[in-house]
Design a protein around this nucleic acid. Structure first.
Lengths: 190, 190
DNA sequence: GCAATAACGCAGTGATCAATGCCATAATGG
DNA sequence: CCATTATGGCATTGATCACTGCGTTATTGC
């Protein structure tokens, strides 16, 4: 966050090369430290030590904790949920909301979201939700391709996505299936 | 967060005594540092220096950055908005949502929310919204006292409060009056 | 295979942080 | 007004952090 920008995170390496292995180890270590209730400081030297990597490497590739968390969140929250295809908009939304609730309820995803919001600023926060918004958009577009009317993307974000994140982050209530169904019912009256 | 617990934050002092002055100075310094785009580390020594107070004092009264932020957020988000009384539920909700949008849009409240979520954990996050939920509850209860039907508190939280916080934290979109009115209209059909 | 380039490991440096013991000062209660 | 308690200031200490040259190892392109 304070450094100009890493020379370019080296994305051209083969999947299994040293670079990819280091990246995976560091990302895993970061999530483990966040999940650990041991209140470890989550600094770069600590993450590096846990990953079995030298702190220098982390400083050079990520630059700061904020950028590291943003990167970890991007990976963690990309592809973890597949867009369902149940045949109906209601089915898709209910299924998707339920999957997202399960994902957000995972004990090590909430600390990651919280920490990323705190240290990653605007970039970090959007890394936690960008793919979710796009997936919601895809669900609505497919329904429109079927020739049906749909609520706007914004409405679905406000009525389904926002409450899920809000409840996860700000409360200690469970994200129950009943409740997620209720959320969906508010955008699909009948 | 790691210390047992401060001996008790000294709440019995007169408003204007040394204790209260120090508390105010530290809280103001914390918010100023968060608002500053200078990317200062927001550590206890830095906060203390800016407040013209010795770091020792901050360590003893708050113990950690997380607890300090939680305390600052509690103060900052308590009493900043008064529950409106327009005579109608729709008026109250629209007014309240608009006030909250203005408050969340304040350039130095968003960094505080983000940082508190990140460093304050469950306690910190709820400090940002507790009073808001209670105020919403008060609005609904007054409408019920008028003998009218209302949506549930949970529904209003999901449909109005959650999108406001979600948009503020995760996106860079403005919290426009038009949009907040739309949110209210979703819980008050007609 | 063999150069060229990029990524990583190593050791070390200055700066900053968290934490503590001791004393000064202000606030409470009789 | 005085004693008791609590709160804040000061100096210091050990630990940790962010960061940087330099050499080594892996990866890429020819």
């Amino acid at each position: 966050m304070s450094t100009p920008a890493p020379p370019s995170p080296h994305v051209g390496s083969r999947p299994g090369g040293r670079s990819a292995r280091v990246r995976a180890a560091v990302q895993r270590a970061t999530q483990e430290l966040l999940a650990d209730e041991t209140n470890e400081p989550l600094t770069i030297p600590v993450v590096a030590a846990r990953a079995g990597v030298h702190a220098t490497t982390v400083y050079r590739r990520w630059g700061s904790i904020g950028e590291l968390l943003t990167d970890v969140a991007s990976s963690r929250f990309s592809g973890a949920i597949v867009v369902p295809d149940t045949g109906s908009l209601r089915g898709d939304l209910e299924r998707y909301a339920s999957d997202l609730a399960k994902d957000l309820g995972d004990p090590d995803s909430l600390p990651l979201v919280r920490a990323t919001i705190g240290a990653g600023g605007e970039q970090g926060a959007s890394a936690c939700t960008r793919e979710r918004q796009q997936q919601l958009e895809a669900i609505l577009e497919r329904e429109q391709a079927r020739g049906n009317q749909t609520p706007t993307v914004q409405h679905v974000i406000d009525a389904v996505l926002a409450p899920l994140y809000y409840r996860a982050i700000f409360t200690d209530k469970a994200l129950t299936p009943d409740w997620t169904r209720t959320l969906v019912s508010h955008v699909l009256p009948d």
